Computed example of a mutant assay.
Amino acid sequence: MTFELNHLLRDIVEKALLLSLLHLPPQGLLERLSSGVVVGDGGFVMALEKRGYVKAGPWTAEASAEHPEAVKQLHREFLRAGSDVMQTFTFYTSEDKLSVAGNGTAFTCREINDSACRIAREVANEGDALVAGSITQCPSYAQGKGKEAVQAQIREQLKVMVENKVDFIIAEFFHYIEEMEWALEEAVKTGLDVAATMAIGARGDRTGVPPGQCAVRMAKAGAKVVGVNCMFDLDTTLDTITKMKEALDAEGLSPFLMTQPNGFHCPGVGREGYLSCPEFPFAMECRTVTRFDVRKYARAAYNLGVRYIGGCCGFEAYHIRAISEELQKERGGKLPPASLKHESWGYGQRYSSTPYLRERVGREYWENLVPSSGRLQPPSHGFHPAPKD
């Protein structure tokens, strides 16, 4: 037995040494998308606001420099849940946004972005994850300062990300396709692969450009991956990406598709998305999607042809784990470490000491459950689906 064990250990060590000598680089984003599905991460700004590290209102990401351990811990939770990408926590981190009154940050764009890149890389190296440098919309666009002013802000962010050798760029949370095109023009110059996601619903961008046209313009501007993120719920996001796919197919374009919706039920909202919910931002818990809602979304997205599937605001680590578990087969049978403490469809309840809880197991029970808010009175505010439309 000892001889066999030593022989097995020797084989393992020899194989490990051989792999290290080969210096095989990890697969990049496009290679991973070509061979399977990439699981994104979840939301940072709202999660860290609840934990006391982000200020609601500005929603800027100075926590990456001010409280790096908090950001690192959230990255680790997403990695453990199955995320294949560590997206830098650099949301709203342009100098023009940081200078807005009320932010109260003493950190520069460079300091925040540099720290965010280093944190993301450290955690990515703990698994087999890629690092995505995230750039977002700039106030300069809405202020009418023009293309050069906006691109100057974008260049400052990209410069730090290139210096830190991120694996690819995500241009996300853009409300206007024109601004997105300006950002992509700069992002493509880095030579890195670029993904582009707009914060729009089925009605299109803030000027009325339909989602299909937005997708076509993003692809023609050089994005290898296109889609939508944040602002809208699971169902609206699926509807929007369907419209994008139809337009791309009609134009003979075939970028990879990506969805990262928010984690709140908000049907019927207008172009402002979940911002128009009276509970936003401090009482959204009653609208939170369940892990079973997310499994349904992940399957539907995959069946539509989406291959980069993640979440945004409201998506916690257990939501990302739900994506990983739903797409286990498509991910080569791989389950994330967090699944060691979780049995799908509630089967862990079999070990409960309470008899009636042991009955709450199985897909039929949990998939068909419509959760209650737990409140006996109706909402205190009327819901206006589109306050600015």
Rank of each mutant, 00 (worst) to 15 (best):
S83E: 11
T197K: 01
H342W: 14
A65H: 05
E359Y: 04
R331Q: 08
G332M: 05
G28V: 09
A317N: 10
L8N: 11
K329T: 14
S353V: 12
A250N: 06
R358C: 11
S352A: 11
G204H: 04
V131D: 12
S140N: 12
P210T: 10
K329P: 02
V306S: 06
E343D: 10
S372V: 08
G332A: 05
T88Y: 03
W366V: 05
Y176K: 08
T105W: 07
E326H: 06
A338V: 10
N6L: 15
A250L: 06
D114C: 02
V38W: 04
Y365S: 04
E185D: 14
V71R: 00
R331W: 01
E126V: 05
A101D: 15
L21I: 09
A183C: 10
V294L: 04
G314W: 00
A116D: 00
G310Y: 10
G346M: 07
L18K: 13
G144H: 05
K388M: 03
G42D: 07
G273E: 02
T242A: 10
D11P: 00
R299Q: 08
R350W: 12
V71I: 06
H342S: 06
A386N: 09
R76A: 14
E4P: 03
T88W: 05
Q157C: 13
R76H: 11
C117D: 04
D96G: 04
G146L: 03
V269E: 01
A283T: 03
A298F: 05
G208M: 07
P337S: 03
F292P: 07
E148H: 13
F282G: 12
